[in-house]
Nucleic acid binder design. Sequence first.
RNA 1: GGUACCAUAGCUCAGUUGGUAGAGCAACGGACUGAAAAUCCGUGUGUCCCUGGUUCAAAUCCAGGUGGUACCA
Length: 299
Amino acid sequence: MLPEKKELIVIAGPTAVGKTDFAIDLATHLKTEIISADSRQVYKELSIGTAKPDASQLEKVKHHLVGHLSIHDYYNVAKFERDVLLLLDKLFVKHDQVVMVGGSGLYIDAVCNGIDELPDVDESLRNELNTLYKCEGIEAIQQKLKLLDPEYYEIIDQSNPKRLIRALEVCLATGKKYSQLRTNTRKERNFKIQQMVLNLDRPILFERINKRVDIMMEEGLLDEVKSVFEFRNLNALNTVGYKEFFEYFLGKLTLEQAITNIKTNSRRYAKRQLTWFRKNPNYKWFSPNELDQVIEVIS
RNA sequence: GGUACCAUAGCUCAGUUGGUAGAGCAACGGACUGAAAAUCCGUGUGUCCCUGGUUCAAAUCCAGGUGGUACCA
């Protein structure tokens, strides 16, 4: 089979829209497998709060990149890109089409368009910069970047500490300007890509989000959060559905407030996801009950 | 039934001696190449309960109505 005949079908969408079931139905129809594109479902310790596919769903279709890591592992978008490309090499041997489903827009883009190859940065360097920011404020890291990479400083969101620190750590680790290491070019893939977004009217989506939080509570989310409480400072746990309950356990919120905040933060997350997908014209938009229409488009 | 208080943004409420209104939260829009469920930026969305009156001018003062809350019957 020629590589050109291979095709990755991306199913994106905001949280709680119904991606998991949709992807299972689609993959079943195509007799293929599913790659998850979800930055939090990769962790084995996080199941209920990340709405991972459950045992019966996993039985229907083979899923990849779900729960294969620990919250103690460091993971990022570049590792995800590499993991998916390796996986696709194997899956395309057996299948002409593979479904990738998830809501992490940056992760999806890394697979579809590629991401610049930059050297790994030592963890201690980032820690140092975080400390500098914490102790001396944002001005300190702004000035530092202005000095090391004035071109990038001009175009960056200067009030965003994570962007500043990222640029700084690359400059410091490589001795080069971050702006010069960014290629801004799209990587060619040896497979075709079709991108779909699932969406619902906002009131319906928000209703689903609120309801799903209640269901997570019934499924024992509180116990799951309790089991990882001691690791709450890990990045993997800077996650909606977990961080709010950490505050509850620390006595900063009532249980009811924590649940309300999870719903609010989930709604805001969904909004940010939609902003991300909207700006990318490659996406075709569908409702989660339009499986037939999606099959029509991809065949 | 009587008395008192209240009625302003989706919610909770500010609003000075009268000059057509503003905070918090929610909401909405956006950015985003190794933390991305992260992080950051921007935006008031209003029959000021209704009807009259006073006034150059009413969210504001007056009268009546409606609705609510509390207390007394």
